[in-house]
């Protein structure tokens, strides 16, 4: 069983839960940016947690199946079509040998996920099949898909019983062109003036076209740093601190303009003050914002972030239970 890539789309990569836990060697996690949508896709087709799927960004590919298979498409509002006919998302579908999956124009959100029963069978690199395109590691040959690629699919057995299983309407996230992301303030927020912190939290920021799997860059305001004599080891830019590790989701503001949220493929450390971190649950929502969308950042405390994470865990368990 294989998938033939007739057209690759804009940026289609093999992703799974990522290679978390490798910060000590400077390895970012990569992995599906919208974990919720990716994981629900695996539940729908009956895959084990962590089976690799495709992350499809902004503009969909054209894929041909060489054998019958159970598939599911979750995530952005990027309408899928089989042989030109629109088919439902968030539902397990059957495709026949020779069927072609394509997509209409993106309506909302930014990233769709294709799950295939058996998972995409690419070599495991440091306990993950995720693609890290910047240095060409993992996934399919370390890169985004290209026309003519063949992707092997793992052994699935007969999963036809899953066809038609769907996620309940009220469990499906909706995406709009305005998103609020919750942030924990820190680690180096002391570098920002109080007025600039108010500006940061009060501004409706615009996602720039640069936003990608490395970082989400925003424009819409200017932030100032507390004046000081830079300590030994810190650079001359007032946004600089002595080098430290960057949490996934942390926000830095080089030069005081255009905050950047570091995401799955970002550098793991450096010398820019990080003024806050987008909470893990809301990184799924961030992953579904697209260029030119509006974003606001809302301050929360750690307890709320942990509660949101627990609520998400319960919701995913409920969905999984309903799809058993």
């Amino acid at each position: 069983m294989a998938i033939k890539v007739r057209k690759p789309g804009l940026l289609t990569t093999v992703q799974d839960t990522g290679r978390f836990g490798e910060y000590d060697i400077g390895m970012p996690p990569s992995g599906a940016m919208d974990v919720f949508s990716y994981q629900i896709g695996n539940y729908l087709v009956g895959n084990e947690d962590g089976a690799a799927g495709l992350e499809i960004t902004y503009f969909g590919p054209e894929l041909e199946f060489t054998e019958g298979a159970v598939i599911a498409i979750t995530g952005a509002d990027l309408p899928p079509k089989i042989n030109g006919e629109e088919v439902p998302t968030w539902e397990a579908l059957w495709v026949e040998e020779g069927d072609v999956l394509s997509f209409d124009y993106l309506r909302n959100g930014a990233r769709s996920y294709l799950a295939v029963a058996g998972g995409i069978d690419v070599p495991i690199f440091i306990h993950s099949r995720s693609t890290y395109t910047l240095i060409g590691l993992g996934g399919h040959e370390g890169r985004a898909l290209k026309e003519g690629d063949h992707l092997k699919i793992g052994e699935a057995g007969d999963r036809s019983v899953r066809v038609g299983m769907a996620v309940a309407r009220e469990q499906i996230p909706t995406f709009s062109d305005e998103t609020e992301l919750r942030v924990i303030i820190g680690l180096a927020s002391y570098r920002l003036t109080e007025e600039s912190m108010r500006t940061f939290l009060g501004t409706t920021w615009t996602v720039t076209p640069d936003a990608d799997r490395v970082g989400y860059r925003y424009k819409g305001g200017e932030l100032g740093f507390v004046e000081r004599e830079q300590p030994a080891g810190a650079g001359a830019d007032p946004a600089n601190v002595v080098d430290f590790g960057y949490p996934v989701g942390s926000i830095q503001v080089p030069g005081g303009v255009e905050p950047i949220v570091l995401v799955n493929d970002a550098v793991t450390g450096g010398g820019y003050a990080t003024i806050g971190t987008v909470i893990s649950v809301d990184r799924d929502a961030l992953a579904q914002t697209k260029t030119n969308d509006k974003t606001r950042f809302r301050r929360v405390e750690l307890a709320e972030a942990l509660e949101a994470r627990e609520a998400r865990r319960r919701q995913m368990a409920e969905i999984r239970q309903a799809l058993l």
Partner: peptide
């Protein structure tokens, strides 16, 4: 002629 993707034209 339509834009296939979001961005800057």
């Amino acid at each position: 002629i339509k834009s296939p993707m979001p961005g800057t034209f």
